[in-house]
Nucleic acid binder design. Structure first.
Length: 275
DNA sequence: TTTCATGTTCAGCA
DNA sequence: GTGCTGAACATGAA
């Protein structure tokens, strides 16, 4: 479930632990996480080069090498990076390890949905993946324009990586909770599958005040989550992240948290707070 | 033993 | 083209 805040923490971790050291070894023990490159070629391309800079777009992390290429990492649902001394044992489920002189950087992924590739140009890769602007680079007017151009529900739009990059299930729920907006806003009428084209309903139906609120909370939630190192137990008590369960008491003390299901995804929200 | 969770991609449908 | 739905992917926890 790494979303923007988690990946930003990973980015800082790599930046602080692993740059400007020669890569002396590569252990690509699980080819499944390699994206479009063999273990052999990845090793050849990396040995002797140094990691030079980090770049994040949404949930995607790039680590530029001084050779010009860049590692492209996606963390799927359970992946993370683990830096350490060379001698430190590597965590269980380590899929790839870079040895950097006296240190090592492990890519660990229990469920193996994560991917590591090597790309020539991060900007081009971002384009190929169809990623929209990073959620933290969005201005209020940018968000307004995205909402205006979208016909889907608010949750769907927030989580659409081609519209806004970086927001997933957890943080879309939190942002909408903090902004006190109904995640279903703009959704088609669920009680009548035929009454689909209601021009009053789409996400563009937000007032200026509501979309301003959404923009402010989007930034605030993501920034505070990063400050909390993306660890829920360090996030404010009043956040929905602590109450993601159907029937849980609303963290604001109002009503009861409910679950809204759409296309196999579950959103949690408080009908009393969010409208 | 079965179900669930989670991000992405993809096929199928309205 | 747009948006929704469900399946697939991998794996461990409930």
């Amino acid at each position: 479930m790494p979303e923007l805040p988690d990946v930003e923490v990973f980015r800082r971790t790599v930046a602080h632990s692993s740059l400007h050291r020669p890569i002396t070894g590569v252990d690509a023990r699980d080819p499944q996480v390699l994206d479009g490159i063999s273990a052999r070629r990845l090793t050849e391309e990396l040995i002797g080069v140094e990691l030079a800079a980090t770049l994040r777009r949404g949930k995607q992390l790039y680590v530029r090498c001084d050779s010009g290429a860049a590692l492209a990492m996606h963390f799927g649902m359970t992946a993370y990076v683990d830096p350490g001394a060379t001698a430190d044992p590597t965590p269980e489920h380590t899929r790839l390890t870079l040895f950097l002189d006296d240190r090592r950087l492990a890519f660990v992924d229990q469920r193996r949905f994560g991917r590591v590739g090597l790309v020539d140009d991060p900007d081009r890769n971002i384009e190929e993946r169809g990623l929209g602007p990073d959620a933290l680079d969005l201005g209020a007017t940018d968000l307004q324009a995205i909402l205006d151009g979208s016909r889907g529900s608010l949750v769907a739009t927030l989580m659409d990586q081609s519209s806004i990059a970086g927001i997933g299930n957890i943080y879309s729920d939190e942002i909408l909770f903090q902004a006190r907006l109904d995640p279903r806003a703009g959704a088609r009428d669920l009680t009548d599958a035929h009454a689909r084209l209601d021009p009053q309903a789409p996400a563009r139906g937000l007032t200026d005040a509501e979309s301003g609120r959404l923009h402010r909370q989007l930034r605030r939630v993501l920034e505070r989550a990063i400050e909390a190192h993306a660890q829920p137990d360090r996030m404010p008590r009043g956040w929905l992240i602590h109450a993601r369960e159907d029937g849980a008491p609303c963290p604001r003390g109002n009503g009861t948290v409910r679950r809204y299901s759409a296309s196999g995804r579950h959103a949690y929200w408080c009908p009393d707070c969010q409208r």
